[in-house]
Amino acid sequence: MKLFYSYHFCLLLLFLPANLYGQLTSVYVTRGNNAAAMSYFLPETKKSEELLNPYLYKGWQPGHAVFNDSLYWEGLFRYDIYAREMEMVIGKDSLRISDPHKLNLVQFGQHHFIYSFFIYFIGNQQYLGNDYFEILSDTGATKFLLRRFIKVDVDEKSNSKMMLGLKNEESVSAKIMKEYYIRINDDSAALRVKRTRKSILRHLSPHQADIVKFAKSNNLTFTDPDDIARIVNHYNSFNQNQ
């Protein structure tokens, strides 16, 4: 049933004229050996308030992207949460990052994004994925990350104003979900954490006692993302001092 709905939903997305996915092309930017890193797409021309929005922000945001070959691109950015894609306008070209593992960092507005593998459990089964993460902690090897994804529920009537290429009268509801992850270093995968003391401490295992002490003295909780980000910053400072 779930498969049917997701298939059905994808078909709707594909064939609706106002949707963006149908406008994407597979023309690659030629830039030396890194030709496969991006592809062109035609920017969205139709604007309709009736459609659901799969982007973090509706409009484009000024920002920059840094690739792992030190290439620096400045332009306008937007993040498609549903398609897990970063789109950008550089000069007159509209591009999407088609090989995001070559990306070091994307920054727009107040947000810093990285692309990473992540691992989570369903029951006792491990799942591996890759997606964009917003960095909530400051600079440091260990990062506290936020992953957004869109949960589409076709059984419920849509109360949302989000634009997912579907009109509001379609009985589809979509909401942005948030999950939190910790990535110990740049070479490892991000691991999903619950916002509990036990879960956070398990991932910051070498300095648990110091972290508990730091959290207590600063009145930090293990449930508030801002507090957890500060705890991870402290964990990083501890590692740097060694």
Binding site: Q126, Y127, L128, G129
Partner: peptide, 15 residues
């Protein structure tokens, strides 16, 4: 070697 086979995958996978 994930990079050799696929650079990224749209869905989450389990072995």
């Amino acid at each position: 070697n994930v990079a050799e086979d696929i650079r990224f995958f749209p869905a989450d996978i389990t072995p």
